Simulated assay, not measured.
Amino acid sequence: MTAESLVNPIATAEERDAEASVRPKRLAEFVAQERVREQLEVLLHSALRRGTPPDHILFSGSPGLGKTTLAMIVAAELGGGLRMTSGPAIERSGDLAAVLTSLQAGDVLFIDEIHRIAKPAEELLYSAMEDFRVDVIVGKGPGATAIPLDVEPFTLVGATTRSGLLTGPMRDRFGFVGHLEFYSGHELAALLMRSARILGVPVEQDGIVEIAGRSRGTPRIANRLLRRVRDFAELRADGVVTLATAQAALKVYDVDAIGLDRLDKAVLMALVSSFGGGPVGVSTLAVAVGEQPDTVAEVCEPFLVRAGLLARTPRGRVATPAAWRHLGLIPPPSANGIFSGGVGAAPDLFTADDEADDRP
């Protein structure tokens, strides 16, 4: 397994089973996201007392923070069935109509990456969310007729990693919007202790803290790193996840002290060595490391920006002085000048439009 696969893997059946086993089943078991958890508890329990479906729910946030898990918890708390699909899978309005008309009263419909749903299906979803009704078009041209079909009262749970791409009418139809934040080291350590108990992995506190500190604030990555460290401990140590074992295992998997993997470091090294620290467009940067632009922009870049190692600017990506130092290099005076507000400093450097790059 490569370092990249720890961040964005194609999960095997065994991996999926392991992930499913450590997922919280109820709100009381869900670690962190305290504000969203409290708001969700009020929303769901008040709806249960009234005997009506709660308002539709939208979860936003980066991949791996628990949006799918919370959708499953919503269904469990309401005691209803759960139907799961994704925006890209719904290409035609008829696909969505078939799903909606098969729902039972009180069911939860979860649509992942809902911002990628096709426009005709999105328009069909409006009436289903508001009136629990869909209009199915039969025939074509002047002879086409709309047949209204009733839909059982249900709760839609949408998840998105790009909430800015949701249309206004879609966003307005959600009665509750919860934004999931990255986890702190303390929260990840608590989550990993729980996962270790479920998986039967012997651990020491300092080993868990080490894994938590390299997990990018993301539970999905933390649990995967725990399983890889477990494998290393069983094969090359005494089976116990200690500080030394965790450090040795993560070195094997090219995960450094702050969570950067081989691809992250390749992007930073290309930026500083080949392009003098930037600015450079993400497409050019992707070619330099032999990856697709979307991989660099969606897998590597968000964490590098959050870690203060890379900045988006109107002219392209720029390595911060911290990036040079993390690679063991001395930042040039030009880099220090840009980030200290000196001559030539780019205005509004860290708040430039995320889409201001040379991607097609």
Rank of each mutant, 00 (worst) to 15 (best):
residue 5 S to T: 12
residue 6 L to K: 08
residue 7 V to W: 12
residue 9 P to G: 07
residue 9 P to M: 10
residue 12 T to V: 08
residue 17 D to P: 00
residue 27 L to V: 03
residue 28 A to F: 04
residue 32 A to S: 15
residue 35 R to C: 10
residue 35 R to P: 09
residue 36 V to P: 04
residue 38 E to M: 07
residue 42 V to G: 07
residue 45 H to A: 06
residue 46 S to M: 11
residue 46 S to L: 12
residue 50 R to H: 01
residue 56 H to K: 04
residue 56 H to F: 05
residue 59 F to H: 05
residue 60 S to W: 03
residue 62 S to Y: 15
residue 64 G to A: 13
residue 64 G to S: 11
residue 65 L to C: 06
residue 65 L to E: 11
residue 73 I to L: 07
residue 77 E to S: 00
residue 79 G to L: 01
residue 80 G to D: 02
residue 85 T to E: 09
residue 86 S to V: 07
residue 87 G to V: 11
residue 88 P to V: 11
residue 90 I to H: 01
residue 94 G to V: 10
residue 96 L to V: 04
residue 99 V to Q: 09
residue 100 L to D: 10
residue 109 L to D: 07
residue 111 I to G: 03
residue 114 I to M: 04
residue 114 I to V: 14
residue 117 I to C: 03
residue 117 I to Y: 02
residue 119 K to L: 10
residue 119 K to F: 03
residue 120 P to T: 09
residue 123 E to K: 11
residue 124 L to P: 00
residue 126 Y to H: 10
residue 131 D to N: 09
residue 131 D to E: 13
residue 140 K to L: 08
residue 148 P to I: 05
residue 153 P to N: 02
residue 158 G to Q: 04
residue 161 T to E: 12
residue 171 R to M: 10
residue 174 F to D: 06
residue 174 F to W: 01
residue 175 G to M: 01
residue 177 V to M: 08
residue 177 V to W: 07
residue 179 H to M: 15
residue 180 L to M: 09
residue 180 L to K: 05
residue 188 L to D: 13
residue 189 A to L: 08
residue 189 A to V: 08
residue 191 L to Y: 12
residue 194 R to A: 13
residue 196 A to H: 04
residue 197 R to D: 15
residue 199 L to C: 05
residue 200 G to M: 02
residue 203 V to S: 04
residue 209 V to G: 00
residue 216 R to I: 09
residue 217 G to H: 09
residue 218 T to S: 15
residue 218 T to N: 15
residue 220 R to G: 10
residue 221 I to N: 06
residue 226 L to T: 05
residue 227 R to N: 13
residue 229 V to F: 05
residue 231 D to R: 10
residue 232 F to A: 03
residue 240 V to S: 04
residue 244 A to D: 15
residue 245 T to C: 12
residue 247 Q to G: 09
residue 262 R to N: 13
residue 262 R to T: 15
residue 269 M to Q: 14
residue 270 A to H: 01
residue 271 L to Y: 03
residue 271 L to P: 02
residue 276 G to S: 06
residue 280 V to C: 09
residue 282 V to H: 06
residue 283 S to V: 12
residue 290 G to T: 08
residue 290 G to R: 08
residue 294 D to W: 12
residue 296 V to L: 12
residue 296 V to W: 09
residue 299 V to F: 10
residue 306 R to G: 09
residue 308 G to N: 05
residue 317 R to V: 13
residue 317 R to E: 15
residue 319 A to C: 07
residue 323 A to D: 11
residue 323 A to R: 04
residue 325 R to Y: 03
residue 325 R to F: 03
residue 326 H to R: 07
residue 328 G to I: 07
residue 330 I to N: 13
residue 337 G to H: 02
residue 340 S to K: 03
residue 341 G to A: 02
residue 347 P to G: 00
residue 351 T to I: 06
residue 352 A to M: 06
residue 353 D to H: 09
residue 355 E to W: 14
residue 356 A to N: 11
residue 358 D to Y: 10
residue 358 D to W: 12
residue 360 P to V: 14
